[in-house]
C-alpha cells in the first residue's frame, strides 16, 4: 500500500458518493449514462467474484462490497425509481454499449494471466472498465449543460485511474511489481479522459460552466 493507491481508491469512492448525492438530493440522473453504469455493474461482478475464493482482506473486501452495492444501487435508481428514472436522458444515451462487451470478452479469452474462469473474468473486467466511460463521454458531448455534480463525478472517475498509474510506477520501482494487463488497460482508460480533463480544467480556471464541444 502506498499513498497513490490509497488516494486512488478514495477518489474512486468519492466519485461514487458524488453520483449518489446527486441522485438522492436532486432526485435526478440527468447527464448520467445508464449504459456506463450498467457496464460498471458488469465490471464489478466479474472482477469481484474472487470475494468467494480469496481470503478476506480488511482493506480490499469492504471496498469490493461497497463498489458492488453502490453500482447496483445507482442502476436501480436510474431504472426503477419513479422520479429519478424520468430524468434519464434516454434519447441522448446512444452509445451501443453491447458492442464493447464482446471484444473485451474475446480479448480476455486470449490475453489473461491464467486460463481459468476467475482469471478470464478478471481480465474481462479490466478491459471493460477501460472503455466503460465511453457512453458517458458521448452523452456529455450531446449535453448543452453539464451540472457541477456530473462534471465532478466524471473528473473523479478519471482521476482515480490516473492515480493508479502513479501507484503502478511507484510499485515498479519500489516493489519490482510488473502487471502488464492492468497497466496497459489503465493507460488506455486514463487516456480516454484526456479531452474531458482538458475542458474540465479550462472551465474551472475560467470559472465557467463545463461544456464539451
Amino acid at each position: 500500500m502506498n499513498a497513490f493507491r490509497l488516494l486512488a481508491d478514495l477518489t474512486h469512492l468519492l466519485s461514487i458518493i458524488i453520483l449518489l448525492v446527486k441522485i438522492r438530493t436532486t432526485k435526478s440522473c440527468a447527464g448520467i449514462s445508464l449504459k456506463t453504469q450498467d457496464l460498471y455493474v458488469l465490471v464489478f461482478i466479474s472482477r469481484y467474484l474472487d470475494l468467494f475464493t480469496r481470503p478476506l482482506s480488511l482493506y480490499n473486501t469492504p471496498f469490493k462490497l461497497v463498489f458492488l452495492a453502490t453500482s447496483i444501487t445507482i442502476v436501480y435508481y436510474m431504472r426503477y425509481h419513479k422520479v429519478v428514472k424520468q430524468t434519464y436522458n434516454k434519447d441522448s444515451d446512444t452509445f451501443k454499449h453491447y458492442f464493447l462487451i464482446l471484444p473485451c470478452a474475446v480479448l480476455a479469452f486470449f490475453i489473461n494471466p491464467k486460463f481459468t474462469f476467475i482469471e478470464v473474468l478478471w481480465s474481462f473486467s479490466i478491459y471493460l472498465e477501460a472503455v466503460a466511460i465511453l457512453p458517458q463521454l458521448v452523452l456529455l458531448q450531446s449535453s448543452s449543460n453539464i451540472d457541477n455534480l456530473t462534471g465532478n463525478y466524471v473528473f473523479m472517475l478519471g482521476a482515480y485511474r490516473a492515480l493508479y498509474l502513479l501507484n503502478w510506477i511507484y510499485r515498479f520501482f519500489a516493489e519490482d511489481v510488473v502487471r502488464w494487463i492492468p497497466w496497459i488497460a489503465g493507460l488506455v482508460q486514463t487516456a480516454l479522459y484526456a479531452d474531458f480533463f482538458y475542458y474540465y480544467i479550462k472551465s474551472w480556471r475560467n470559472n465557467e460552466r463545463l461544456k464539451l464541444p
Binding site: 471496498f63 463498489f67 501507484n167 510488473v178
Partner: peptide, 10 residues
C-alpha cells in the same frame, strides 16, 4: 506468473 495472479488491487 504466480505474481500476476495475486490481484491485490481493486
Amino acid at each position: 506468473s504466480a505474481e500476476a495472479l495475486k490481484h491485490d488491487e481493486l
